[in-house]
Write a protein that binds this DNA or RNA. Structure first.
Lengths: 256, 256
DNA sequence: TCAAAAGTGTTTCAGCTACACCCATGA
DNA sequence: TCATGGGTGTAGCTGAAACACTTTTGA
């Protein structure tokens, strides 16, 4: 296992350590919705037990946002809703990292030494359409998977707490903007939409109240009727692009 | 002027360029309230025309937050409410920076070269009690001053847009948490408190509605009566520390 | 005709808005 | 007694919550 990690790292850094900004990394919290579960994307590199958030580094003349898109693409993630959360910058946020440094002289040791220095990490969250996403095992990870956001087990370094903080931001985001559109397929039923809201907010919502509230916002429109399920068939809806963009751009207005 | 800038920079970097993380900087948007104006703190270094946000760099084994406090203290700013906004990371966010680089070999040139490379900047905002603050002209600036947040003129690089974005975050913050306590003196009248809300939200608020709303939250308590002004004397209030902390910690609950 | 799920009606309650009115003070 | 600002009362509106009711389908 040790050997394949070596190869993987050398491949990832093939352009040389000098092509990346030192001391700055990126981490992405990628949310997906698999009715009725809210999930988050994690990685595991060979020979390691703990799950990690996907991440990467920034090239010297690359915009921060561009670097995030590039890294997401390595996992097969495209067409996402992307937003920055914040930067985590405690000097020793990754406990004991320095102890793992090899003292050899190979390129591998050089990489390990580089990656084991102090890093400030800029965290983004991304919302993707779960069922339209095909994960790729990128150069840096041999295993990618979705885990239930309420069952974070075996997360490495400070990534569990990063996910928890990001989850709170997602709640705030949902209350201000109809971001659900980025997590659902083209068409969906009201039940699926409500399930998503319930998953994010982590509580149940009255069916009638929910329906009226969403309909009044005018962000969804009926397109069809589904006849495949048990019980009374439900209508299919899609997001009204125009209204959706409009309410995305709107200033949040509440309180005073 | 050129000469004093040289001295100043050499002083600031006396411990050597190696003591700071390269490519990462900090900028602070410091808000103060001088009834009825919301103000922001800016700097100007010798020989320069444009105003800049105060800022600095992070030491190798220094927490990000600690670096921010250290840099604020250089300006005489202490006891602040501090929150991270986001990180600005466009590769060329500072246009034409490289053109200013001298090609000499002095320590001064070395500093200029170091500071002219690509920087990712982590932006914080701070709320301070304007009338309890005495600005210090720190090593890095020869001029510090408060400017009206609605009259941003002659701001350098991308700092005007950073202030504008931060101002929006402040609005959101105010709607979720009673951050006004960090901007007002110990005691204040309802009119001053309302003036602050109006300054931040940039609109007028009904007197009666405002008073009832604040009183119901229980975050202020009456302490005295002021008799020095024209017209009917107003009551003086102070923030109730307990209730204030409680509502700071509260999850924002609105919308669904 | 029954279970299951979609969809609607309706009552109640809370909170905000706007504006009018009253109060306390100094000139 | 008037101007100036502080402080209160209240009618009307809006919208959320809760829950009961109706509708449409498959078995």
């Amino acid at each position: 296992m040790e050997r394949s990690l070596k190869i993987i790292l050398e491949e990832y850094f093939e352009a040389g350590l000098g092509s990346f900004l030192p001391h700055v990394s990126i981490n992405n919290v990628v949310f997906g919705y698999d009715h009725p579960y809210l999930k988050v994307l994690v990685h595991r590199i060979p020979g390691q037990n703990a799950w990690m958030l996907p991440g990467g580094y920034i090239k010297h003349e690359e915009d921060l946002d561009k670097a995030v898109y590039r890294n997401l693409k390595l996992d097969g993630i495209e067409n996402v809703f992307l937003r920055q959360i914040r930067t985590f910058g405690d000097a020793f946020r990754i406990p004991g990292l320095n102890e793992t440094v090899d003292i050899g002289n190979s390129k591998y040791s050089e990489i390990l030494r580089w990656a084991s220095r102090r890093f400030v990490t800029v965290v983004y969250y991304a919302l993707v359409k779960y069922h339209q996403t095909r994960l790729i095992n990128s150069v840096i990870s041999s295993e990618s998977t979705w885990i239930d956001v309420n069952k974070l087990e075996n997360m490495g370094v400070d990534h569990a707490s990063i996910i928890l903080e990001t989850r709170k931001m997602l709640v705030t985001e949902l209350q201000n903007h109809p971001v659900a559109s980025s997590l659902l397929p083209e068409s969906f039923t009201f039940n699926e939409l409500r399930g998503l809201y319930e998953a994010i907010l982590n509580r149940s919502i009255d069916r009638g109240t929910f329906r009226r509230k969403i309909l009044k916002q005018g962000i969804v429109e009926q397109i069809d009727t589904r006849k495949d399920a048990l019980g009374r068939p439900s209508h299919l809806f899609r997001f009204n692009e125009e209204m959706y963009l409009k309410s995305l751009a709107e200033e949040t207005k509440f309180g005073f």
